[in-house]
Computed example of a mutant assay.
Amino acid sequence: MARKRSVTGRAQPDNRSSYIVTALARGLAVLNAFGPERYELSLRDLADAAGVTPASAFRIGFTLIEAGYVIRNPVTKGYRLGPRALSIGIETLSAMTLTEIAAPYLVALRDRTNETVKLAIPTGLQVVVVARVPSLSYPTMTNYIGAQMPATISSLGRAVLAWETTELMTSVLSKTKSLRLTPKTLPKPQLREELETTRKRGYAVNDQGTTMEHRSVGAPLLASSGHPIGAVNVSVSAQRISMAELKRRIAPEVVQTAADISRVLPPEVQGAGRLGVSV
Rank of each mutant, 00 (worst) to 15 (best):
R3C: 09
R5T: 11
T8D: 15
A11T: 06
N15D: 08
S18L: 15
Y19G: 14
V21H: 14
A23C: 03
A25Q: 15
R26K: 15
R26F: 04
A29R: 15
L31C: 09
R38A: 14
Y39R: 13
Y39S: 10
Y39D: 12
E40T: 12
A47Q: 09
A47C: 07
A49W: 11
P54T: 10
S56D: 13
S56I: 13
F58S: 13
R59G: 09
A67H: 12
A67D: 14
A67C: 07
Y69P: 02
I71H: 04
R72T: 12
T76A: 09
G78Y: 10
G82K: 07
G82S: 06
R84E: 15
R84D: 11
E91T: 12
T92W: 04
T97M: 07
L98N: 11
L98S: 10
I101Q: 07
P104L: 07
Y105C: 01
L106E: 10
V107C: 00
A108Y: 00
R110L: 01
R112I: 02
L119W: 02
I121T: 15
P122G: 03
T123N: 13
Q126V: 02
V127W: 01
V129N: 03
S135E: 06
T140E: 09
T140C: 09
Q148K: 12
M149L: 15
S154C: 12
S154H: 01
G157T: 02
R158V: 03
V160L: 07
A162I: 04
W163E: 13
W163S: 08
E164Q: 14
E164K: 01
T165C: 05
M169E: 14
T170F: 04
S171H: 13
S171C: 07
S178E: 15
R180N: 01
P183W: 00
K184F: 07
T185Q: 01
T185F: 01
P187E: 11
E193T: 13
E194C: 09
T197M: 10
T197Y: 10
T197I: 02
R201F: 01
R201N: 04
A204K: 04
D207E: 14
Q208W: 00
T210L: 05
T211P: 02
R215W: 02
S216F: 01
A223G: 07
A223L: 15
H227E: 15
G230M: 03
V232L: 12
V236S: 03
A238R: 06
Q239C: 03
I241E: 05
I241V: 15
M243W: 06
L246A: 10
R248E: 12
P252I: 10
E253P: 00
E253S: 11
Q256T: 13
T257Q: 07
T257I: 02
I261H: 03
I261S: 07
S262G: 15
S262Q: 06
V264E: 04
P267Y: 06
G271P: 09
V277H: 10
